[in-house]
């Protein structure tokens, strides 16, 4: 069973890998749209990576208003 800290860490790693940034440049409270410079379409790619990695379904409407990694990890955690 993942803890929220482990889930957050995995999300940060996935985002760093997918968008080709250094993992240590990302923090849980970062706004991922601003920090990664991504649009809504690229955020969908991240959602797909997350669903594949955690083997969950995360409806995109659950991500409305979510822009930081910590809250994203909480949404994931609720599906694990």
């Amino acid at each position: 069973m993942n803890t929220i800290d482990k889930t957050t860490d995995e999300v940060l790693r996935l985002a760093a890998e997918h968008f080709k940034v250094q993992r240590d440049q990302l923090s849980p409270d970062d706004d991922f749209f601003k920090k990664l410079g991504i649009n809504s379409l690229q955020a969908l790619d991240l959602l797909t990576r997350i669903e594949q990695h955690f083997q969950i379904e995360l409806p995109d409407y659950e991500l409305q208003g979510v822009s930081d990694f910590r809250t994203l990890a909480q949404r994931i955690q609720s599906r694990l």
Binding site: L47, E51, E57
Partner: peptide, 10 residues
């Protein structure tokens, strides 16, 4: 009815 997106595996 939900308008949600699904991935290829789903």
């Amino acid at each position: 009815l939900t308008g949600r997106s699904i991935n290829a595996t789903k």
